[in-house]
Amino acid sequence: MRGVLLIASNFAREQRWPILLLILGVLALALMGLTVDLQKQQEDALFLFKELSIYGIAFSVFFGGSAINTERRSRRILAVLSKSISRSQYVMGLLAGVGLAAGLYCFTLGITGTWLLGDIGFSRSHLWFLMACLLAACLLAASVSVLYSTFLNPFLATIATALTLTLPAGTTRFAGAGWQHVLPVHTLMDVVLQAAFRGDWVADWTLVALSLVQAAGICGLAAWIFTSRDIAVALD
């Protein structure tokens, strides 16, 4: 477990500049609260909040899809895997690192949202539920991109992840609602994107838990594939 945490914290440290950039984007939203009359521009503020949520998913996919390849290309993976770290611990560590980055992002977005949207009538508990949905979606999306990155380059891994995550959304429309529980990134994002100032909301924690279980399963599959991969051969 300690090895996983070390790899996770090291990943977050290595990605500190992109993470900082993302957080600065959120803080730019906070600046809006100081400069505009939010009571009059409620919907615009909520729209920006939703837009930033989608960025969170996109960056999780990019982080997950490039993590292994970046380490291989730089050859830094060799010194790490020469220690008593198993391949599965390594993959779990990378995913935990993406989770850490996504968690930081969601927390910052949650704090900013609480301050901006909470003051103009958006339910604060609803907002934190949305952040939980976003974090779960980020983790699930990242696990899929990590899975593909074990055998594809970052570009192909990102495309494959995008296709995989949109497939259940399309299938739900044609083949029934049961599909919304398969890789439910789109369902979770639907919850975030449908959020409104007025109207009832229900916290469906089952969906969040289901996403986390699926993320863990996909992470296990990624670890299993990565265990049998040669990592020191020339790339591409």
Binding site: L6, I7, R13, S74, R75, R76, L78, V80, K83, S84
Partner: peptide, 27 residues
């Protein structure tokens, strides 16, 4: 086992912190 790769590539952080990181990975 201690391993040093050809053309070693290391994370950019203070030397002591880096060596501790690798030591910690080894328990």
């Amino acid at each position: 086992v201690g391993f040093l790769a050809e053309n070693v590539a290391l994370y950019h952080r203070p030397a002591a912190s880096l060596v501790k990181f690798y030591g910690a990975l080894n328990g």
